[in-house]
Design a protein around this nucleic acid. Structure first.
Lengths: 230, 230
DNA sequence: CTGTCTATTGAATGGTCGCTCATTAAAGCT
DNA sequence: AGCTTTAATGAGCGACCATTCAATAGACAG
């Protein structure tokens, strides 16, 4: 017995449309890049007609901007909460950040860094937006972690500004790699998990106070940001 | 007195053309991306007519492939020579590699990683070529460095395969960054040199044998690849 | 059930760009 | 000089694709 209302070919859902179109566009932009994605492809994937995206977005570029904004903003605040609420050794904090990063990788947001990097020169607006909203905050996040470790006497006194970028780099690159060349790398003898563990291994050993791992020496007095040398 | 032969508007230089076209295409592809670069732009920049590139390359995609091959192959062998000829502490070898990387960054080849990553999905041929010729060899290179350090008793016994990727990552990301978002990062409080020094700082401390830096303990016997435990 | 409103459709439009090829003019040969 | 060869040119063709808008059909009120 066939359904009496056989799925109307046209449905009116004004408020659900933008998010659906954005989700479709995000998937295709990440997969194929901006230029190689036709608006018609986006529409088809979202289950709507060619013209519909233009009712909600000014044009293809406007859709792209919406994709970036929509995908990024939710991700940003998340890490900052963790930083504020965490108590315990800074090494554990970094472990948790790095391992949590593996989940972000698999989420729809995971492909955005590669997308933004690929299109930065063609969309300066987006490049600046991304730098301000993601890169700058990301740096502040890692700088805060490193500073926390130094102040608590867990980490050596390194240049936190530069070191934050070095510490963040392997995570960023993993995200970019997974959405670009990884599918063409047949030699699959490594895993993202193994990579993250090796990362934590070097970075934590490299930041740790010398002799902290069984070679006993007097721990130096913890540094306070306001202490001056008299 | 005007020149009697006033620069002919059309010159015939069959053998110099391909390299000139490739150089122009490389600069534009890296700057704007593949799709946003018109063949006419490439021709204009090379000082030739629209039709000329098609005399030497099958089509735009063929030109792209030529750009990647031509730019990459010279770079690859260089590092491997250094590895073979170097004698001395492995830490110094890594320092030299990382600092030498700063020069590669500024060369025409510096923008290729970003370009290839951005276009990988649209040109699987190129993606596979790049993975085989650059990524795989690059990994072998860093794996060899780490293994050298371990065998000489300078580095801890880490998982060289995964660690090689972690150690290479910050250098790769620096290259990608410089050709994508760096121009939009107004907050120029860090330098590539400072980044590289921070990188060497953590990585070398993270790989070093525990207690190697003034915390005296008995150095472990150097490992030999062929030694078995009886 | 009828009429109104408006979300949605998709054929048509116009611009862009990869690519071709008939034509032109250097370069070399005798 | 004249002749031949062929590197190089650039206007024009055709395909592709972002964008439009008159027509259409859900939704909902009365």
């Amino acid at each position: 017995m066939p359904d009496s209302t056989p799925a109307p070919r046209r449905t009116r859902r004004k408020d659900a449309r933008p998010a659906e179109v954005i989700a479709a566009a995000r998937a295709l932009f990440i997969e194929r890049g901006y230029a190689a994605t036709k608006v018609e492809d986006v529409a088809r994937r979202a289950g709507v007609s060619v013209g519909l995206p233009y009712l909600y977005f000014e044009n293809k570029e406007g859709l792209f901007k919406a994709v970036v904004r929509d995908t990024i903003l939710p991700q940003v605040a998340q890490g900052e909460d963790l930083l504020r609420s965490f108590t315990g050794p800074t090494a554990d904090l970094l472990r948790r950040v790095a391992r949590g990063f593996l989940e972000t990788l698999a989420s729809p947001a995971g492909g955005l860094p590669k997308l933004v990097i690929a299109e930065a020169h063609n969309f300066p607006d987006i490049a600046r937006f991304y730098v301000d909203e993601v890169v700058t905050r990301g740096r502040a996040f890692f700088t805060a972690i490193i500073t926390r470790g130094i102040e608590r006497g867990e980490f050596r006194a390194v240049d936190a500004g530069h070191m934050a970028r070095v510490v963040a780099a392997p995570l960023s690159l993993l995200s970019i790699w997974n959405h670009s060349l990884a599918p063409y790398d047949v030699n699959a003898d490594t895993t993202a998990e193994g990579y993250i563990e090796a990362y934590l291994d070097v970075i934590l050993a490299g930041l740790a106070m010398p002799g902290a791992d069984g070679c006993h020496r007097l721990p130096p007095p913890p540094l306070s940001g306001k202490t001056e040398t008299p």
